[in-house]
Computed example of a mutant assay.
Amino acid sequence: MSKTKKIKVLIVDDSAVVRQVLSDMMANQPDIEVIATAADPIFAVAKMRDEWPDVITLDVEMPRMDGITFLKKIMQGKPTPVVICSSLTEKGAETTMEAMSTGAVAIFTKPQIGVKGFLEQSKAELLDAIREAARSNVAAMGRRAAPRAAVNNAEATASVSAAQTAMSKTTEKVVAIGTSTGGTIALEQILTSLTPGCPGIVIVQHMPEKFTAAFASRLNQLCSIEVKEAEDGDKVRPGLALIAPGGKHMSLVRNGAFYQVQVKAGPAVNRHCPSVDVLFRSVAKCAGKNSVGIILTGMGDDGARGLLEMRETGAVTYAQDEASSVVFGMPKEAIKRDAAMQIISLDQVATVVTSYSFR
C-alpha cells in the first residue's frame, strides 16, 4: 500500500518563536511535513527554488519584503495556497484584508502577547486551516470577473428613490449569503457588481473578530451599494449589505413591515461564530418565501441545514458550483441535502441577486 502524500508546508515568519512552535506543531502529523522555514520572503524565495510547497503560512509584517508583496509575486507566478498568520490588531486587520483580496485562502490570527501559548492552544484550528488550504482550488481565485463601474450619484439617487416607492407597495426580498474559505474574493466580485436598487443583503463570512470591520470598510469603498459591519438593530434595506461581525451571531428579525438584524454573542455553532446556520434559520423563520438563500465557497457544512430550512419555508435557494469554488465543502453539503434549488457559478450570483429586486 502506498503512503499518503504529505502536505508540504513552508513557514514564513520573522519570529523565531512562531517558526519553532509551528514546526513542532506539525512535526508529528502523518499528513503534514514542514519542508522549510524562513525569517522573511527573501529567504523564502531562495528555499522555494529547491522545493515548492503545497501550502505557505505567511506573516504580513516582515523585514525586507512585506507579506502582501510576497503574496502578489506568488499569485502572479505560481499560485499556491497561503494561510495568513497575522496579529489580531486593527492595523493588522486592514493589511490582512488586502492580503485576502490578493489571494490568501485563510486567516489565522495570533495575539501580540503570549503568542506561544496561544498557538499551542489553537493547534487543531491551525492544522485544519492548513489541510483546508491544501484542498483549495486557488485557480478559481484567478477567474474573477471584472467588477462593474460604479454608478454616478444621479443614478444612485434614482435607484434609492425607486426602492423606497417599491417598499411602500410590497414586502421587499431579503438575500442571505453564507460563505467561508474563498468568500472574501467571492463577495468582492458579487457586491461590486450590484447597484443601490438591489435587495437588502445579510451576510455571514467566517472571519475572526476585528477583521470583519476592516473587510466591510474595504468593500464599502469599492462598491456602489453600502456595505457595513452589522450592528444590533440595523434595518435591512435595499442597497445595503450587512456583514455579521466576527465573534457574534447575526439573526434576522421582523419589526412591523420591515426586517432588521439582531447581533449578539453566543456559543459557536458548527464550530463558527458567526454561523451561517444561525442566520439562515432566522431568515427561514422571519422571511420565508420573501427570502433568497445563497451558499458560497467554504469548508465544512455550516449553512447546509439552514439553507434547507429556507427552502422548506418557500425561499429560493442557490449553491455555488464546484468549478468556481475555492473550497466546495459548504455548497456540496447543501446540494447533498437537497437544500439548493439551483447550482450556479460565481459569475451568475450578482445577476441572481439583482433579479429579485422588489418582486
Score class of each variant (00 low, 15 high):
231 E>K: 13
265 A>C: 07
227 V>I: 14
221 Q>Y: 12
300 G>Y: 04
329 G>C: 09
352 V>H: 00
289 K>V: 10
330 M>S: 03
217 S>E: 15
276 V>A: 08
274 P>L: 03
279 L>M: 14
283 V>C: 05
282 S>D: 08
282 S>M: 08
254 R>L: 08
235 K>Y: 14
261 V>M: 00
232 D>K: 08
286 C>W: 06
265 A>V: 11
306 G>L: 11
233 G>T: 11
346 L>P: 02
310 M>I: 09
338 D>T: 12
309 E>Q: 15
223 C>M: 13
219 L>D: 12
254 R>I: 04
241 A>E: 09
278 V>K: 04
351 T>Y: 09
341 M>N: 12
253 V>K: 13
351 T>K: 14
306 G>T: 10
300 G>H: 03
258 F>P: 00
332 K>A: 11
282 S>Y: 09
239 G>K: 07
327 V>C: 15
264 K>R: 13
239 G>P: 05
274 P>M: 04
278 V>S: 05
285 K>R: 15
277 D>R: 12
239 G>E: 08
243 I>G: 05
308 L>Y: 12
333 E>A: 15
287 A>F: 02
272 H>M: 05
263 V>Q: 09
217 S>T: 14
331 P>G: 04
247 G>Q: 03
230 A>E: 02
346 L>S: 04
292 V>Y: 07
330 M>T: 03
323 A>Q: 15
285 K>H: 13
256 G>H: 10
292 V>H: 08
240 L>R: 10
299 M>G: 09
340 A>N: 05
255 N>M: 12
297 T>F: 03
353 V>K: 00
298 G>N: 02
347 D>M: 12
327 V>T: 09
236 V>E: 01
309 E>L: 14
234 D>H: 11
307 L>N: 11
330 M>D: 06
293 G>K: 08
278 V>D: 04
273 C>W: 00
219 L>H: 13
227 V>W: 10
291 S>K: 01
279 L>T: 06
224 S>Y: 05
333 E>I: 02
345 S>I: 02
218 R>Y: 06
343 I>R: 11
267 P>W: 03
255 N>E: 15
346 L>F: 03
249 H>Y: 07
295 I>R: 10
297 T>E: 03
351 T>W: 01
273 C>L: 03
230 A>N: 01
293 G>P: 07
348 Q>V: 02
283 V>T: 09
278 V>N: 05
268 A>D: 10
290 N>P: 06
255 N>P: 01
259 Y>G: 03
324 S>T: 15
351 T>P: 00
270 N>M: 08
233 G>W: 11
316 V>Q: 13
260 Q>S: 14
229 E>P: 11
346 L>R: 12
261 V>S: 00
218 R>C: 09
273 C>I: 06
271 R>C: 09
225 I>T: 13
349 V>R: 02
301 D>S: 14
350 A>S: 15
326 V>T: 06
310 M>R: 07
291 S>D: 00
281 R>Q: 15
251 S>K: 15
346 L>M: 04
340 A>E: 05
311 R>Q: 15
276 V>N: 07
218 R>N: 12
349 V>N: 02
233 G>H: 10
308 L>I: 13
233 G>C: 11
227 V>F: 13
348 Q>I: 01
292 V>W: 07
335 I>Y: 01
260 Q>F: 01
216 A>T: 12
239 G>F: 05
265 A>I: 07
333 E>H: 13
277 D>Y: 11
293 G>Q: 07
338 D>L: 13
225 I>D: 11
247 G>V: 02
317 T>A: 07
295 I>S: 11
